[in-house]
Design a protein around this nucleic acid. Structure first.
Length: 597
DNA sequence: GCAATAAGCGCG
DNA sequence: AAAGCGCGCTTATTGC
């Protein structure tokens, strides 16, 4: 078995940007530009590479430098390792990928040109265990100086509102707005990339003993490698007895399915929701086995060994890793930390965690996106769903929630679908907006978020299935199949506009938080956090609509205020004067999970 | 024997 | 009959 540490062995500072030669990092031909504005034409200062010229000196010479580089995740970790913080940057690879798919600039050379070195992911450097013979010299893969300069110019041209298309004297006002929004998106993505690298650098403060306590309480003492914990072994025995299957392996799905059917249970899978309503003595221990087994394998002692080091969990965030613009993560399952274990996230002595969570983010984003005054009004206050009940739209809060989720995801069955007509009557602009996005997707069109991120076009297979259904000899089966596929894509585009715009709000929020935290300055004696954060509040965790700041205790209440102010600022950045609010539940605590609004 | 896939479940 | 979106990770199984 390869352990989790092995899987995540390529730390970002071992990635492209310089090749490892004989264990010594070489700067290679990768360019770092420093300019005063994003693609603003200011003469860049060239840094030949952070190994060649001390970055501290370069930053010090510039008033408000904006670093321009091919890839934040390739460069920034090394600056941070030297204790250097970058205030602003332009990440060319992230920018390129946004412009490539943005419907608003689909005619620009960046969008129409062939796939190039800014389209792909960061080339992974060879891991520690790989054979040197097959190691890739990533100097070939990393864009060189000329490529970076050309990319800056191409982005500049694509996003410039100075130049109207087709030689028209002035760009249309709405086009100027669209371009300004795209520029904001690029800035937000880049700021997010900085925050992501900083969070990896700082790490999540992790209380290994508390984690171990949770595991021992639920599973029993740590077993020898390859052995089941005692609690799991007990449950396995109970399941075997209840099913009269002495050799049953509870980890084998076909095995379990066969055994359940043999005792007469009409199951087609071993999914929790299918099992939980069955009345049989094997079900309870089986479900508990599955739950605990999951905890053991995904976040058990092996996870602790592999991912927590020196009291810090350091996941790698993948900015722009999800089509909608959300972040992904790699290593340790950072975005799936079970709630059970959040008590193991614990502030250092003399420090606190500030935990903030945007309440009902997606419905509020939809209200702003669709400029739905009535939905925005329902969200003015803390509980949007409660306000929907008070407005007489639905009878109870649970229905408001499930109905709204159905509208966002495209639910077609159950109580969610049942209340949709009421929501459509109460909030025609909001519901009409997601409905239009769904219809566009069904037709094979692309849709866009508020700031202009485009959805990926449907692939060849999608187009082929639609074409087949339209041909004369298409049978009923083919037509129904094509309809199913088309509706599936409509659900994706429906959700894309909301999830993607929510991700943009979150980027703006985190960018604001990051800036405001730095502006708070230093406090108290140096803690365990690495430079440049040893005496400063800093972000340590981000989860779509939730963030955690690690702060010196005396600053924590002020940090909570800044986080709230940042949310309001993010709302104004995206939605201007439109009266949509973004309340947070924010609290100060020693442990993540203890924080209350 | 190793790589890809499926099932299932954790998170929002 | 089934089909509410987006992910990452682990294990067992299948495929080459």
């Amino acid at each position: 078995m390869t352990g989790p540490a092995r899987t995540g062995g390529s730390a970002p500072d071992e990635r492209a940007g310089g090749a490892r030669v004989g264990g010594v990092r070489q700067a290679g031909g990768v360019l770092v530009l420093v300019s005063r504005a994003v693609g603003g034409g200011a003469a860049p200062v060239r840094v030949r590479g952070v190994d060649d010229e001390a970055p501290h000196g370069v930053v010090g010479r510039e008033a408000a430098p904006r670093w321009v580089w091919a890839d934040t995740s390739a460069w920034y970790p090394r600056l941070l390792a030297d204790g250097v913080r970058v205030e602003r940057c332009l990440d060319l690879r992230l920018a390129h990928r946004v412009v490539r798919l943005a419907p608003g600039v689909s005619a620009s050379p960046v969008a129409t040109g062939p796939r190039g070195e800014f389209d792909g992911p960061t080339p992974a450097a060879p891991g520690a265990g790989d054979d040197a013979l097959f190691a890739v010299d990533d100097r070939d893969a990393a864009p060189d100086e000329a490529a970076c300069r050309a990319e800056v110019a191409a982005l500049d041209q694509a996003l410039s509102s100075e130049q109207a298309p087709d030689g028209a004297p002035d760009p249309a006002p709405d086009r100027a707005v669209a371009l300004a929004r795209l520029r904001l998106l690029l800035a937000a993505e880049s700021a997010g990339a900085l925050a992501a690298a900083e969070m990896h650098h700082a790490g999540v403060p992790w209380d290994t003993a508390a984690h171990d306590d949770v595991l021992r309480g639920l599973l029993g003492p740590r077993p020898r490698p390859g052995q089941r914990p005692v609690r799991l072994e007990e449950l396995a025995t109970a399941v075997r007895e209840a099913l009269d299957a002495p050799t049953l392996n509870p980890d084998s799905l076909p095995d379990v399915l066969r055994a359940l059917r043999r005792v007469g249970l009409p199951v087609t899978s071993t999914r929790q929701w299918e099992l939980e309503h069955l009345d049989h003595p094997a079900i309870a221990p089986l479900l508990e086995y599955k739950k605990l087994s999951r905890l053991h394998s995904a976040n058990g002692w092996a996870w602790l060994d592999g991912w927590v080091d020196g009291g810090r969990f350091r996941p790698e965030y993948v900015v722009g890793g999800v089509v909608t613009g959300r972040w992904g993560s790699s290593g340790g399952g950072a975005l799936q930390l079970p709630r059970q274990l959040r008590g193991a996230v614990r502030a250092d002595p003399g420090w606190r965690l500030v935990v903030a969570d945007a309440a009902q983010l997606e419905p509020r984003v939809l209200a702003g996106l669709a400029r739905d005054e009535r939905l925005a009004a329902a969200g003015r206050g803390h509980d949007l769903y409660g306000a929907m009940v008070d407005a007489g739209v639905v009878a109870e809060r649970a229905l408001a929630k499930v109905g709204m989720l159905g509208a966002l995801y495209g639910g077609t069955t159950g109580p969610s679908a049942a209340v949709l007509p009421r929501l459509a009557r109460a909030y025609p602009d909001a519901l009409g907006f997601v409905e239009a996005a769904a219809r566009a997707g069904e037709r094979g069109e692309v849709v866009a978020t508020l700031l202009g991120r485009g959805s990926p076009p449907p692939d060849e297979a999608w187009l082929a299935s639609q074409a087949r259904a339209l041909s004369d000899e298409a049978g009923a089966r083919e037509e129904s199949r094509a309809r199913t596929v088309s509706r599936g894509w409509g659900r994706f585009t429906r959700n894309f506009v909301v999830q993607g715009t929510a991700a943009e709000w979150a980027l703006a929020w985190i960018a604001q938080v990051r800036r405001r935290l730095w502006a708070m300055g230093e406090s108290g004696p140096a803690g365990r956090a690495p430079a440049p954060f040893a005496r400063r509040p800093h972000l340590v965790y981000f989860l779509h609509d939730e963030l955690v700041v690690h702060a010196p205790a005396d600053l924590a209440p002020a940090v909570a205020d800044e986080v709230r102010a940042a949310a309001a600022a993010a709302g104004r950045l995206l939605f201007g004067d439109f009266p949509v609010e973004f309340p947070l539940t924010a609290g100060v605590a020693e442990r993540y999970g203890d924080a209350k609004g």
